[in-house]
Design a protein around this nucleic acid. Sequence first.
DNA 1: ATCTTTACCATACATATGTATGGTATCGAA
DNA 2: TTCGATACCATACATATGTATGGTAAAGAT
Lengths: 208, 208
Amino acid sequence: MTQELTEIQRKILEFLIDEIKGNGIPPTLAEIAVHFGYKNRATVQQHLGAIERKGYIKKNPKLSRGIKLTLEEKFFVPRPVLGEVAAGNPLTIYPDAIDTIELPTIAKMPKDSFLLRVKGDSLKDAHIFSGDIIIVNPNLEPKNGQIVVAILDDAAVVKRFYKKKNQIELVSENPEFEPIVIERNYSSFNIVGIVVGVYRSMERKKAG
Amino acid sequence: MTQELTEIQRKILEFLIDEIKGNGIPPTLAEIAVHFGYKNRATVQQHLGAIERKGYIKKNPKLSRGIKLTLEEKFFVPRPVLGEVAAGNPLTIYPDAIDTIELPTIAKMPKDSFLLRVKGDSLKDAHIFSGDIIIVNPNLEPKNGQIVVAILDDAAVVKRFYKKKNQIELVSENPEFEPIVIERNYSSFNIVGIVVGVYRSMERKKAG
DNA sequence: ATCTTTACCATACATATGTATGGTATCGAA
DNA sequence: TTCGATACCATACATATGTATGGTAAAGAT
């Protein structure tokens, strides 16, 4: 359904996503033209036409700012999972890790939260299931018992946080998984944020 | 900072929120006028002016659809919770909200849908737990396998919906519970709506 | 060598859009 | 009774906006 975009079309699509997510409203042709240095709206018009023909957006004719993204979930774009960046932190995710997550590609993250999609069932005992979207706040101090997203040795984990005397314990709800113990001075450990909410859309099929 | 809105202004603000959340883009003055039956954009213009003076929105002058919500932290919108469902108990939907929650803006909240708070653990096998907020859309035709809110003999049930030849089956995920079978012509059965999403805030108590 | 695709430009046009201004009616407070 | 706030209407206007159409240039395919 979605053909390949040319380089320029891809950049324009990215700009559209940025604007729609960051600014709230889709740009006008003129605004796009200004951003890319085009002297003419018609240039943009034709690019948008191509992008629409290839199925990435839907234009509402005669309607100002009538550009809609056809992209899945509006917040996630299919991307390779390895070597992506979330909220400024380098985050490498092993496809075989217990907790793998799919990252939102939106460049402009809201300041105080971002989203991650959960894959795998290691959190099911915390009532979080594969396919759920978790809302992560990177600006909160983790408290005992809260669920945190953390980077440990370049792998992402989502687990309950417990601070002990000289170490931090990351506990899975699932008794099958042993708690991970991190010594205080361990360097390649980083808390990305605290899970403040869970959202699940029922519109698709359930994750198996 | 935010003064009281008049009744009409409040309704317009609600419409703005609905449009921005549901449609993706803020409406134009003309669209608002049409929706409220005004013959003139100037009327809307003056209402918006009042709403802006009272601090609820921010208008980007000279910009089409340049209405921004000031409430919204970009991530959460206050939404009324209309009632509670506990499987087995009669469902009361109060015209005035029993509560207000901060719903993440990613949560798809189709027009006319409403929120209910779940009580009890009868849905835990559908991955819905006590305290969760479900988003219910009353205007969709239920499809097989979808989770619906229904009223059966004055009691509320939230179960998976399956339509058979001459009957409807309501199935619990939990094999302990027998499916409920409703004959086609049974009168005291009503589908309230389809559960399109689930949201859980982690900020208060943790799930036990 | 011709054709298609991509990537731009310019001009023209209807109308969508926000704004300014002035008017009428109702209601409650001063 | 007068005044201000609220809630509407009408008209006028500049320009923002999407669209239609035609043209140029480069790169690659056939």
